[in-house]
Amino acid sequence: MSILEQVQVIFRDIFDDENLVITGETSAKDIEDWDSLTHIQLVTKIEKHFKIRFTLSEITKLKQVSDLILLIQTKQT
């Protein structure tokens, strides 16, 4: 499974929506429930899943899914 697909599984779980489809451009504007509370839930779940750690300033700078995927890629290498 690609990183995007794995992230999508996590998004579907957090937002409780089995039909949710995300792309690189998906941002908080596109998902109504994506607020600061669900944002940190996403981050901690992604940290666990990919076994990586984000710093404070990295978390605040995540604006859309592509930022997240890029960050996961850099952390994994």
Binding site: S36, I40, V43, F54, L56, I59, T60
Partner: peptide, 8 residues
């Protein structure tokens, strides 16, 4: 700077 670090 407070909530997120605690949760994380």
């Amino acid at each position: 700077y407070v909530f997120n670090p605690i949760v994380q």
